[in-house]
């Protein structure tokens, strides 16, 4: 019938769920060929059941959606607003974006986020490095050059969402971390020998004892990365199997996590006296940007440097009541 697609296969060329429409895609997760309409339905219902089964949210909670403008977070924003409406979660949703202050880098994605704001009717808050730390990435690069600036950007970004979430006074932060990200984390923790983190990296809510819990409704949803990509090519299911392994690992409940404290300066979670962001900021503000990058130097190791800290006047990072 359909001349373009060769006669013998016409029989199997129907969506394997509704058996009516032509399939538009092959789901990597199940290898089923399904049509566009069915895909939306299954995908959204899967996310819904993950949310319900794991009791991710309670009615009336304020939830920030980490939005980068990329496809994961855009889909997350759509699905969250759609499910919230459809299933009456009763959640107050916000979009939360971070602006690192790199000229020409975030502009496009921030535009996307702004479109999402209008499209899904979700209020958007953009927090910039400038607001949070007093420095834009451009300024930091000017100060320390092109080497090592990733350290700053990475450390600052790790906290930025939490800090933004604290500003918005939300109860939880949802991120678009998907199955691939989590599978990758499982493998990384094995390679690094970090048994403690291995035990918790697959949990869908992290940081419950911390200031703002993070949820990952996309935990069982797909994406990619080198070794993982190769694996997926051979066996798409491997990603989910890695997560399953991570969940099933027989790790003694007594496994000690590194003790979690709070930064004496800003109140953010930190295993050291000062959190990494504060150490780096300290360096920037004192004009010693290498502070906290190398191995031997650092505020946390030298208590007597403490006195100098008071002299820093410029650009303090705001302390937050987490």
């Amino acid at each position: 019938m359909d001349g373009a697609h060769g006669g013998e296969k016409t029989k199997s060329r129907l969506c394997s769920i509704c058996n009516q429409r032509r399939p538009a895609l092959k789901r990597p997760k199940t290898l089923q060929q399904i049509c566009r309409e069915c895909f939306y339905v299954v995908f959204e219902e899967e996310i819904h059941s993950v949310i319900v089964n794991n009791k991710l949210f309670k009615p009336g909670e304020r939830i920030a959606i980490g939005a980068s403008g990329g496809k994961d977070s855009t889909v997350l924003a759509y699905v969250m607003s759609e499910l919230n409406r459809r299933h009456n979660y009763g959640l107050d949703l916000f979009l939360l974006s971070v602006d690192e202050g790199i000229t020409g880098y975030r502009d496009d994605s921030l535009e996307t986020v702004k479109r999402n704001e209008i499209q899904y009717g979700l209020p958007l808050k953009v927090v910039s490095y400038k607001d949070l730390y007093g420095w834009t990435m451009d300024e930091i690069v000017k100060m320390i050059g092109l080497k090592n600036n990733c350290t700053f950007c990475g450390v600052f970004r790790r906290q930025a969402l939490d800090r933004g979430a604290a500003l918005l006074k939300v109860d939880k932060l949802v991120t678009g971390h998907n199955a691939d990200d989590i599978a990758e984390t499982v493998l990384l923790n094995i390679l690094r020998g970090d048994i403690a983190r291995l035990s918790r990296c697959t949990s869908i809510i992290t940081g419950e004892d911390g200031p703002i819990p993070r949820c990952k409704p996309f935990k069982y949803t797909y994406e990619k990365e080198i070794f993982i990509k190769d694996l997926e090519r051979i066996r798409p299911r491997a990603i989910l199997d890695i997560i399953k392994s991570g969940e099933d690992f027989r790790i003694a409940t007594s496994t000690k996590m590194p003790e979690q404290g709070t930064c004496q300066r800003c109140g953010y979670i930190s295993s050291q006296k000062w959190c990494k962001a504060c150490v780096l900021l300290e360096g920037l503000n004192r004009g010693l940007p290498k502070l906290g990058i190398g191995r031997t130097r650092g505020v946390n190791r030298k208590d007597d440097q403490h006195n100098d800290a008071k002299n820093i006047q410029s650009k303090p990072c705001g302390s937050l009541d987490f």
């Binding site: 491997a238 392994s245 991570g246 690992f249």
Partner: peptide, 13 residues
Amino acid sequence: LAATVKGQGYSLA
């Protein structure tokens, strides 16, 4: 690693 990838996290030990 192979057992992890195959979803044998429980029996691996």
